[in-house]
Design a protein around this nucleic acid. Structure first.
Length: 432
DNA sequence: TCTGGGGTCCTAGGACCC
DNA sequence: TCTGGGGTCCTAGGACCC
């Protein structure tokens, strides 16, 4: 690392009310009106304009509960259009790239910019923030706020301040703020606003009389570490200006890929769920291939409607190890459907199903098939089944034979003993 | 029959983020 | 009647190996 040059810190650029702002670009009539964008099946409000927030629409609020409010205040509710939002997100990123060579796309509406080496170009970093705001608005049409700080956590916090406090005009630079002024701000912000401090930890902190950002900054390192672990310890250090979280320029490949949906109307037939699971698997494989990975195991799951508290609930999942890492759609769909048939129970109304691709990457075939002296130990559920089958049909000796073949050979054999692939039990040697 | 410690892998669960 | 869909990391405990 270039130890000579002091780190200049980070800027966090965040689009205001992103999905709503995107919709407004293409329908100016939505401006100055309360607008929400809804999730799948028009279930929840996942984005709100400032006007909608002012009316009390909470994030992820179930929309059917907001009908009265919506009618009364004429709130516009839109179904989401993720293709559009992804495209707009890319356009914003392209503008930001002009400002810093090092940039991390943190989410669909947020990017961190590394400010190292940029100080010479701007008399004050806040000027850069204003330039970004003007240019994104002019070129893409959406409003952004900019937070600047010596660490990513402080940049996030600065962004929060820029959004909430009018006098900052959309740009807050904590890095060049007088310490006393920053302390005043920190004393007035609840600790739950800090990146990495959620509701649970806020509650626990409150019990320790730590309620504001200033309190958390002043909290003794040791006790934070003891109570909350290394993650919170890092967060605290970042709040004090010690950078612990690096910029991730090159997005690391995903470690798991999920595709799942709630059903608008509950499903009860295997056929319906098979159809959706096939679709989810295909969608997941698209993402898998897009990042050039293979997967070593497929997880499939089904759920009943958790909001129907009076009805019996059934949540089940199954992980199917694949004989070898693959990105082959047919193999993955087949495995998912095989798992689905193992967990499907008739007479149940299913609300949600999904597929998760696991063990992504290269050489991630599941290892260690874990047999003790003829007795199975920890193993994934499908393997347990396979073991049971061998044990029951052929006895312990064959079980030992299979285990003696070693993990890799066993992986190949798994193909033969798992009904998903074949039911060729008889090909295995019988116990003497 | 009693006796030990260190390292690693795996899983489940909990917390967080957008 | 109607309640989203993605992700990450850490920890603890069990089981194994040497």
């Amino acid at each position: 690392m270039n130890a000579g040059a002091p780190a200049a810190g980070f800027a966090l650029v965040d689009v205001n009310n992103f999905y709503v702002s995107c919709e407004r670009v293409f329908d100016p009539k939505l401006r100055d009106r309360p607008v929400v964008v809804l999730s799948n099946n028009d279930g929840c409000a996942v984005a709100r304009s400032n006007e909608a927030k002012a009316l009390g629409v909470q994030m992820a609020a179930p929309w059917f509960l907001m009908q009265d409010l919506a009618r009364k205040h004429d709130i516009v509710a839109l179904s989401s259009n993720y293709t559009l939002y992804a495209d707009m997100s890319n356009r914003v990123t392209e503008v930001l790239r002009q400002y810093s060579p090092r940039l991390e796309v943190y989410s669909i509406d947020e990017s961190f910019l590394c400010l190292d080496g940029l100080a010479g170009q701007w008399p004050r970093m806040a000027d850069m923030g204003q330039a970004v705001r003007r240019q994104v608005l002019a070129w893409v049409g959406v409003p952004v706020c900019v937070g600047i700080g010596p660490t990513k956590t402080l940049a996030k916090l600065a962004n929060h301040i820029a959004k909430k406090q009018q006098q900052f005009d959309g740009v807050c630079d904590l890095a060049s703020m007088a310490p006393a002024a920053a302390d005043d701000l920190f004393g007035a912000i609840e600790v739950g606003e800090v990146w990495g401090v959620g509701r649970r930890i806020s509650d626990q902190l409150a019990r320790l009389r730590i309620r504001t950002v200033a309190d958390l900054r002043a909290a003794p390192e040791k006790s934070i570490r003891q109570h909350f672990g290394v993650v919170m310890e890092r967060t605290c250090a970042e709040l004090r200006g010690v950078s612990c979280i690096a910029l991730e320029d090159a997005a690391p490949p995903r470690k798991q890929i999920v595709s799942s949906r709630s059903y608008g109307e509950r499903a009860d037939s295997l056929r319906e769920i098979e159809e959706s699971v096939s679709t989810y698997a295909a969608r997941a494989v698209e993402k898998l291939r897009a990042q050039g990975s293979t997967c070593g195991a497929v997880h499939v799951f089904v759920e009943t409607d958790r909001f129907k508290v009076d009805e019996p609930q059934y949540n089940a999942g199954r992980t199917i190890p694949l004989p070898e890492p693959t990105d082959d759609l047919r193999v993955i769909v087949k495995a998912a459907l095989w798992g689905l048939r193992r967990i499907f129970r008739s007479g149940i109304l299913y609300k949600k199903a999904g597929v998760m691709l696991m063990e992504l990457g290269e050489g991630t075939a599941r290892q260690g098939m874990l047999f003790g002296s003829g007795v199975s130990r920890t193993a994934s559920a499908p393997l347990m089944d396979a073991l049971d089958g061998i044990n029951k049909r052929f006895g312990r000796d064959t079980l030992r034979l299979a285990s003696a073949a070693g993990p890799h050979r066993w992986a190949a054999r798994f193909e033969r003993v798992t009904p998903h692939y074949t039911t060729d039990w008889d090909a295995l040697p019988r116990a003497k």
